[in-house]
Amino acid sequence: MAVYFFYGDEDYNIELELSKMSSKLNPDFKSMSLQTLDNPDFSTLISALRTTPMMFGDMLIIINAEEYFTSNKNFFDDVELSEIEDALKNNPETLNIVFVLKLPRDENKKPDSRRKLYKILSKYNVKEFPTFKTYKTAEIAGWIKTQARNKDISLNDDAISLLIEQIGNNLREFDTELDKLKLIAYPEKKITRKMVEEICISNEDLFGFADLIMQGERDKALLEFNKLLDKKHPLEILSAIQTMLRKWIILKTKSSLSPGELSKLTGQHEFVVKQTLQKLKNTKTADLVKLKENLYEAEFRIKSAEAIDIISEVECAIIG
């Protein structure tokens, strides 16, 4: 078969590619034909590379190799690297081997090409999976359309634009929302902007909710929270607010940076960055941090089964 080297900071696209490869394996023998190893030592790795597939068909071995490229010195010595190289050259036709290196998001890092292992793997099928830049909306839209086709649905252009405006460049979140939209649209297969509005909590919704809390208008904040419950489960709302607050805190503490740099840090479009900075003008960073702490504690209590009632737990966090 083949040897692959996948690397990049868009881990979700890497996961999708691996999923596509594993879907081609014989489903009756998948437990035996699919193997995943995390930074295996030499003996474990060489044993895997020399695996001879049995009668159940093709095999796929995924090797998460982060430590191979991040350790201070070479993970393998020259003799071991020579054996690895030899094993890859003599790879059986029924065996796919994929080395995976997931890089930190938005840090523009690349594998260290000086490492001997990189030089070995670069002779094979190398593919980079970079994060989409937030300003490259056409590329993000293209990805959404492809995923929609895979789910047997399609989206109007204005629906796609709204998704990008609300989500940014988070592919995993796009995929989750597409699954929800498919259920909402059934038996129809066309997704409209109105459908997106029905399920997506907009930045305006979240900002309005958080702003009411910080202004001390708890009653109104609780009413707003109950409106959000029509669109999302309480934990989803908490997750969305936590994500939003994290981005707001970054914007407040790094406000001296350019909108472009802040866009990279938060995964938001530059327009959204500028708009949010204006709205946060009179908001204290300390208030944002305190709200985030309260909501984090509520989320922890809910997930650890300490909360008697989920909605009441969130409401208590809002009241402070």
Rank of each mutant, 00 (worst) to 15 (best):
R105I: 13
L235C: 13
P27T: 05
S255E: 13
T253Q: 14
A2Q: 12
L178G: 11
P259A: 06
R115P: 06
N170V: 12
M32K: 01
A286Y: 09
S33I: 00
I250C: 12
Y118K: 12
S154Y: 11
F225M: 11
V196S: 05
F174Y: 10
K119Y: 15
Y118N: 05
D28M: 06
N203L: 08
I46E: 02
K24G: 09
L37W: 04
Q166H: 06
L222E: 06
I249Q: 14
L18M: 04
F6S: 01
G260W: 00
L251H: 05
R193F: 04
Y4M: 04
I311V: 15
V289T: 10
F75D: 02
G260I: 08
K279E: 06
D219L: 09
L265Y: 03
R50P: 01
L34H: 07
I318M: 10
I249T: 10
K194Y: 07
P111Q: 12
S122T: 06
G208V: 06
L117D: 07
A159I: 01
C316M: 13
F69G: 03
D152K: 14
E188Y: 09
E299W: 04
L101W: 06
L257Y: 07
F300Q: 13
S19G: 15
L60H: 05
F5W: 03
K189V: 09
L238F: 05
L101V: 11
I319T: 06
D179L: 09
E313C: 14
M21H: 10
A148P: 05
S19E: 15
E198C: 01
V3K: 03
N72C: 00
M32T: 05
E299I: 00
G216T: 02
K232F: 07
F207K: 05
K252M: 08
A65S: 15
E299Q: 14
S43A: 12
I62Q: 10
N125S: 09
E306Q: 15
P111D: 10
S256M: 04
E17D: 10
G260Y: 02
R115E: 03
M59A: 07
K303T: 11
L212C: 02
S122H: 12
G168W: 03
D230A: 08
E66A: 14
V79H: 07
L183C: 11
